[in-house]
Amino acid sequence: MNLFRLDASILPGTSSSAEIADIVEAEWTAAHPEATVTRRHLGTDPLPADTWTLATTAGFTPEVDRTPAQRDALVLSSALAEEVQAADAAILAVPFYNFGVSQHFKAWVDLVIAGAGPTTPLLKGTPTVLVTTLGGGYGPGTPRAGWDHSTPYLERILADVWQAELTVIKRELTLAAVNPAMEGLRDLAERQHSEALAIAREAGRSLAER
């Protein structure tokens, strides 16, 4: 058994997404103590920003004419795709930044697609938990309803393109505890925090059983 764990927080020491993902992973590893966990942390070990361009242009370049950088990019993109495809279960902890998906996570997705092809269902039938955390509130009726341009993209890639059996754990208002302007939302934020942790425990057990 192989669990693939990806993190994308740029603040790993205080990551809200990692806190939730850690609970999911703990439940999974408790059920599979001898299994392998393959980890990739894009926040602490980001992929080179130009690698996707190199891997993509290499696909349109005859092999004999590819530069060393293009060849290296193809090797990396293939390795990243294989890392995902080899998973028996997956956990992705992906925070929301600047109203969308962070560039370092998008670079990873683009490289995986370059390595596997744009329509390859890398996670088909694979139980997968997506943990995403948002500093503010973006639900219906909030001042910034509809500003979450990250979660729909994540669901599209994981569930629709890669065909994962996807469970989403979404926690909002993570900045309420430290932002004075959000003081009135702190009780709600704490309830959402507690609910997310409880959902994570259940999701981890379910992930282990599937």
Results as ranks from 00 to 15, higher is better:
Phe105Cys: 10
Leu54Tyr: 00
Trp162Gly: 12
Phe4Glu: 05
Thr51Met: 08
Lys106Thr: 13
Leu173Tyr: 09
Pro152Phe: 09
Ala164Gly: 10
Gly135Ser: 05
Ile169Asp: 02
Leu197Met: 15
Trp52Val: 12
Ala89Gln: 04
Ala198Gly: 15
Asp187Ser: 14
Asn98His: 14
Glu183Pro: 07
Trp108Ile: 08
Pro140Tyr: 11
Glu195Asp: 15
Gln85Phe: 00
Arg191Tyr: 05
Thr53Cys: 01
Thr57Met: 11
Ala200Tyr: 12
Glu202Val: 15
Pro33Cys: 02
Glu183Leu: 15
Ile91Gln: 08
Arg186Pro: 02
Pro62Gln: 06
Gly100Glu: 13
Arg201Trp: 08
Thr120Leu: 10
Leu134Met: 09
Asn2Lys: 14
Gly125Asn: 06
Lys106His: 08
Ala203Glu: 12
Ala8His: 02
Thr132Leu: 02
Trp147Gly: 06
Leu207Cys: 12
Ala35Asn: 02
Ala30Val: 00
Leu74Ala: 05
Asn98Gln: 13
Ala86Tyr: 01
Ala189Asn: 07
Gln85Met: 04
Asp65Ser: 08
Ala58Phe: 06
Pro12Gly: 09
Ser77Leu: 04
Ala89Ser: 09
Asp160Gly: 07
Thr119Leu: 11
Ala31Cys: 01
Thr133His: 02
Arg171His: 05
Glu165Cys: 02
Tyr153Val: 10
Thr132Asp: 00
Ala8Met: 05
Thr133Arg: 03
Met182Phe: 14
Ile23His: 04
His149Met: 09
Ala189Tyr: 09
Glu34Lys: 08
Ser15Ala: 03
Ala79Glu: 12
Arg201Lys: 15
His149Cys: 06
Ser17Asp: 03
Ser194His: 13
Gly139Trp: 11
Ser17Pro: 01
Val168Ala: 10
Pro12Ile: 10
Lys170Asn: 12
Leu74Thr: 04
Leu123Lys: 04
Arg171Ile: 11
Lys124Ala: 13
Phe105Tyr: 15
Trp108Arg: 05
Arg201Asp: 10
Pro95Asn: 09
Ala198His: 12
Arg40Pro: 00
Leu3Gln: 10
Ser77Asn: 05
Thr56Phe: 12
Gln85His: 05
Met182Gln: 10
Trp28Val: 00
Ala189His: 05
Thr61Met: 08
Ser77Ala: 15
Leu92His: 04
Pro143Leu: 15
Asn2Ile: 11
